[in-house]
Design a protein around this nucleic acid. Structure first.
Lengths: 141, 141
DNA sequence: GTATCTGCAAAACATTTGCAATTCT
DNA sequence: AGAATTGCAAATGTTTTGCAGATAC
């Protein structure tokens, strides 16, 4: 991994008022390299070999901080585990019920343009689709 | 509660291949009287006085069975607890981040008419909105 | 009389919390 | 030195599982 990437991430964090600690930089770097909506466990398992002292607590802390500062969004698409998405622009998520993969869908949805409905003020919008993805469809028996 | 209601629920359960046990009838009755997306805990707490032997396990078992048979849908709108919705027709949910209430939104969404996207087959569609509801908005300081 | 349903107790599991040790500036 | 960050260990809270007793057909 090159120094230029690290510096870009450092700048990004500082611009959002986040102290760029080693752990935070590595976690953000991992998110940008793995846009497959990893879970906390996946982030932890992947970075553990390189950062042997890393704890799950730090991953949780860091993701909460990133989420709070608007750097990532946390998606709770059923199941029990939360997934981390470095793309904070509103978009549709499709989850395959066979392989578990989560896909980003670029298709626009009018819901994303609403800022209120029935008198309620809208701050967050999520569209979750579930089914069989194009890969699993073709692998069927 | 009248015998007519019980019979309607019995018929409904039997029509879906579900043995109409006392617990199942009471849980379904509760769901039809309380359309506010109750949690397992709320169902359990409300029925416990009337059915002292009721266990959380039975509520879980029953809701999973109902869900499997298409009688209710289970919604996981962030947080940790699941909510039960006796309305299985696709519709938008709005959750107030202040009071926690979940509202059904009647507004149509084009997403609900899709049955595939980007080559993926869609079986389930969920739209979750979050913000401040019209009641909390007016109660603000 | 056999299959199904119920419910207790324990397990599983993701996430949070308290706090002490470490690391930055 | 002082403030922020890290990470261990324990707690929390929801859901699941194993199994024995009760109930229904």
């Amino acid at each position: 991994m090159n120094a230029q990437t690290i510096n870009k991430i450092k700048d990004l964090l500082e611009k959002h008022g986040i102290q760029p600690s080693y752990q935070r930089i590595k976690i953000m770097e991992f998110l940008y390299k793995n846009k497959n909506h990893p879970t906390i466990e996946e982030i932890y398992n992947n970075l553990s070999p390189e950062i042997p002292t890393l704890s799950r607590t730090t991953v949780y802390n860091t993701i909460h901080l990133f989420n709070q500062k608007g750097l990532v969004s946390v998606i709770c698409i059923d199941e029990k585990e939360m997934h981390v998405d470095p793309d904070v622009k509103p978009h549709i998520h499709f989850k395959c019920i066979k392989c578990g993969r989560i896909y980003d869908i670029k298709e626009p949805a009018e819901v994303f343009s609403w800022d209120s409905i029935d008198g309620h003020i809208i701050y967050e919008k999520e569209i979750f689709l579930k089914g069989i993805c194009k890969h699993c469809k073709n692998e069927s028996i």
